[in-house]
Design a protein around this nucleic acid. Structure first.
Length: 826
DNA sequence: TTGTGGGTCTTTTTT
DNA sequence: AGACCCACAA
């Protein structure tokens, strides 16, 4: 990456010289007044509140063009940050298409992580930062502060008297560090957990990984973890976190969280380094600001600290990643963080019809904490949002399948739509199965968006482990991964021996294996195979250096000679051919890199897959995956209380959780350009159990005037099932439900499974208990919880209930219950 | 070393 | 119900 050299040219070149030839600004003419304001205001901090479909990317691009053509900065002095590679790529493409006065691409456009890697490679040896003695007290003071954010000042820490001598610490990060993905991380943590004699059953590695990730998201190093988190992971969380960080340094590796954390830490502790970057980046642009976590926020705040020419773009109503550390607070607090900030609201929507916007607006208005925005459009009215209830999930999938086909043909005078124009957006990925099943049986082409990323797949990770080992033989994690893949007769015992031998000699596992073979510490088939592997790795390594083979040819040789390709060729399972296909893809992907090394450097941060195939297909994806996309026709199935809004989200995060769910609903509806169809089912299988469902409370929030309630076919003829009833008179029932939802003891229509001849609906009393209503329980009362089943109330304490459930030994403190006082659903 | 049975968990997912 | 993971047996 030579961008630093490029941008150094700035020091000698004069901006004034470029200013001589002023050019017209065609990009500004294409904007509406609000967009134009956001693009033109180049002085000081700007917050661009861009609602769904209001042309924020276009505005951002115009802003870049404006900065360049008014000679405020060179391309290389603009820092443009996104969250995903997809977003970064999209911006790159857009910029390339409408270059205006741009001389070339922006070298500092990328994800937080990619940009951090770029920075970190230059300063890796500054990690870890060690507090010089004199500063220790100060740091302790910081930790006592309640608010993580307030404990950091905009000004970097005072320069330590003596810059730590890196040689003093044998252990520091080196510039060629590897980036671990989640899988490696978990394996590493597992080893630590075992080494610490912790019961991995009770305290899973995943949990620890989650806790550590949470800390890193908050920019907390092991020393910084506040005392309130000290009891995390059976009181040993911090201890293990520290060990983990040490282990990472030993491996010269970082995880994703470290990329941000280390960069922030360098900025905080080395003012000269920070100043260099502050000077370099004259303008900072941030996309999806509502998704930033604390660490990323600090990253930005430190970089913008000097000139404060920061432009954050976001939509507080589309913040749906709170569960992974995103802080809506960042965007809500922007004006406080950056006094004198210029706030621009983009409210004209170019995507959806008025009916759709009205529905979305009416739902999101239910949220308390928002900056407030009202989308409008001058488009034609179009169709009302459609609402329909179904008997069960299968019926719902069947109906949507037919509806998709109808739209494809073009019905009721509507234009025929391509399958590419339609999407089904679900709350949880397991909901996708019903649609896949149905679409397979009727032969409707579909594509699932999401799923495991290309480079996360088993075979890709295996292949890459081979490459890694060839490039850097001391990569122990890679060695562990492939030593017995394909099967070489090296089981646990053999691997243990290698571990011991390597540790005893203080060498890498590969080297340890070699020593072990020399000492004849291992025998039989395993020894022979291990010998071949060790020898081959050495040979491939030499080939990588000396031979004239292209790296693609080398990759193929590695995969073939190691027996890895053969392993899948002999595999008779149905997925084997697909995996071989993926391996070919992988080799093809090597093409765009100069060598294996270069490929590996980048692969952990890229995810370009999504092969664009020609055939039109309906898209199926989660609401989260749909963010940023748009479709003429959108289906939103599964709007049932407990599923959407998700019970778990509400249990864990209360009102905050509910508000995030509501934003999810908002995101869903605003994906639609012309037709938006919301549906729910009266009955659904939950963990193999049939449960009757209530329509989502968000349905209550839809404005009657903009909703058309459809009648599910066939329900009137056969009888009056719960679903039929709710579906047929959803508008009336919505009104009734709205009044009773949050109070204990609402009436509930009880559905009964019974095939075609649907029985009369029966009423039964159920109670939803929220925090305020816990006191309405009595000791010894029998309760039912969706997850834990039936149980007895043991104790009532403040706003918490302690319940012992029938299911062997489950004793939980939960605040929310559903309690049937007479009848049991199904 | 590989197969099997029992126990557990079950929202969303990027880098 | 169904997937996954681990412990234990062949």
């Amino acid at each position: 990456m030579s961008s630093f050299d490029e941008s150094d040219a700035f020091e000698s070149a004069s901006l004034a010289a470029r200013a001589m030839a002023a050019r017209p600004m065609p990009y500004l003419d294409e904007l509406n007044p609000a967009q134009r304001e956001a693009a033109e205001c180049l002085e000081g901090p700007v917050l661009m509140l861009a609602g769904a479909g209001t042309g924020k990317t276009k505005t951002l691009m115009a802003r870049v063009a404006h900065i360049i053509s008014t000679r405020q900065a060179f391309e290389s002095q603009i820092l443009a940050v996104t969250f995903t590679n997809k977003a970064a790529k999209e911006m790159k493409d857009r910029l390339a298409k409408t270059p205006y006065s741009l001389k070339g691409p922006l070298p500092w456009m990328g994800t937080f992580h990619a940009l951090s890697v770029k920075i970190l490679r230059r300063h890796a040896e500054l990690i870890p930062f060690r507090e010089p003695e004199a500063n220790v007290k100060e740091v302790e003071d910081l930790h006592d502060s309640d608010d993580v954010l307030d404990s950091y000042d905009l000004a970097p820490a005072p320069q330590p008297e003596a810059v730590p001598d890196r040689d003093m610490y044998s252990l520091h990060l080196k510039s060629n560090f590897t980036i671990l993905d989640t899988d490696d991380q978990i394996r590493l943590l597992k080893q630590l957990i075992v080494a610490n004699n912790i019961d991995e059953k009770r305290w899973p590695a995943r949990m620890l990984a989650g806790i550590i990730e949470g800390w890193k998201n908050k920019a907390l190093t092991p020393e910084n973890v506040p005392s309130c988190d000290a009891n995390a992971y059976n009181n040993r969380g911090v201890e293990l976190y520290e060990q983990y960080q040490t282990r990472l340094l030993e491996l010269n590796a970082v995880d994703f969280g470290d990329l941000i954390l280390h960069t922030v830490s360098i900025f905080q502790h080395y003012p000269d380094v920070l100043a260099e970057y502050q000077r370099r980046f004259r303008y900072i642009l941030v996309d999806e600001y509502q998704d930033t976590n604390v660490a990323q926020y600090l990253w930005l705040r430190l970089l913008a600290g000097g000139h404060k020419n920061i432009c954050c773009v976001g939509d507080d109503d589309q913040s749906i990643y709170g569960w992974r550390g995103a802080e809506v607070g960042n965007i809500l607090r922007f004006e406080k963080d950056f006094p004198g900030a210029h706030v621009v609201r983009l409210e004209q929507n170019y995507r959806s019809t008025p009916h759709i916007l009205a529905a979305a607006g009416s739902v999101i208005r239910g949220n308390e904490s928002r900056l407030g925005k009202e989308l409008w459009t001058d488009r034609d009215e179009g169709e009302k949002v459609r609402l329909i209830g179904h008997w069960d999930g299968e019926e719902e999938a069947r109906w949507i399948g037919e509806e998709v086909e109808a739209l494809q043909r073009g019905t009721r005078g509507m234009r025929a739509m391509s399958l590419d124009d339609m999407a089904i957006l679900v709350r949880a990925s397991h909901q996708m199965r019903a649609f896949e099943d149905r679409f397979l049986t009727i032969g409707l082409p579909y594509r699932v968006i999401g799923g495991p990323r290309f480079y996360e797949r088993l075979e890709i990770r295996d292949a890459m482990a081979y490459f890694r080992l060839v490039v850097s033989p001391e990569d122990d994690l890679a060695f562990e991964r492939i030593v017995n893949t394909p099967k070489r007769g090296l089981g646990n015992v053999a691997q243990q021996k290698i571990q011991t031998c390597a540790r005893a000699n203080g060498v890498s596992l590969l080297e340890g294996a070699r020593l072990l073979l020399e000492e004849k510490g291992i025998g039989g088939k395993g020894a022979k195979e291990l010998g071949i592997l060790v020898e081959s790795l050495g040979r491939w390594g030499r080939m990588a250096k000396d031979s004239d083979l292209t790296h693609m040819e080398l990759a193929e040789i590695i995969l073939d000679e190691s027996g890895y390709t053969g392993m899948w060729q002999n595999d008779k399972t149905p997925e084997a051919p697909g995996r071989l296909e993926n391996l070919k893809e992988l080799v093809k992907a090597l093409e765009s890199f100069e060598n294996l090394q270069g490929f590996l450097e980048h692969v952990s941060l890229i995810m370009d897959n999504e092969s664009d195939d020609a055939e039109a297909k309906v898209s199926i994806m989660t609401l989260h995956a749909a963010k940023g996309l748009e479709f003429p026709a959108v289906f939103l199935p599964g709007w049932e209380d407990g599923l959407f809004p998700s019970q778990r989200s509400m249990d864990e995060s209360g009102l905050k959780g509910l508000e995030e769910e509501r934003r999810l609903a908002y995101v869903g509806i605003t994906r639609a350009e012309e037709i938006c169809t919301i549906s729910f089912a009266g009955n659904r299988r939950v963990y193999g159990q049939w449960q009757s469902q209530m329509p989502s409370r968000f349905i209550d929030e839809l404005p009657d005037a903009h909703v058309e309630v459809l009648t599910p076919p066939g329900l009137y003829g056969g009888g009056f099932g719960a679903a039929g009833r709710v579906g047929a008179s959803a508008v009336e029932s919505r009104v009734a439900q709205a009044n009773t939802y949050n109070s204990p003891g609402w009436k509930r229509m009880q559905a009964r499974s019974g095939g075609q001849g649907m029985s009369q609906p029966r009423e039964s009393r159920h109670t939803i208990i929220d925090l305020e209503a816990v006191s309405s329980f009595t000791l010894g009362e029998r309760v039912f919880h969706q997850k834990f089943g039936y149980g007895i109330v043991q104790d009532i304490e403040g706003d918490k209930l302690e319940v012992v459930f029938d299911k062997a030994g489950v004793k939980k403190v939960v605040a929310k219950f559903i309690s049937p006082s007479d009848d049991i659903p199904f």
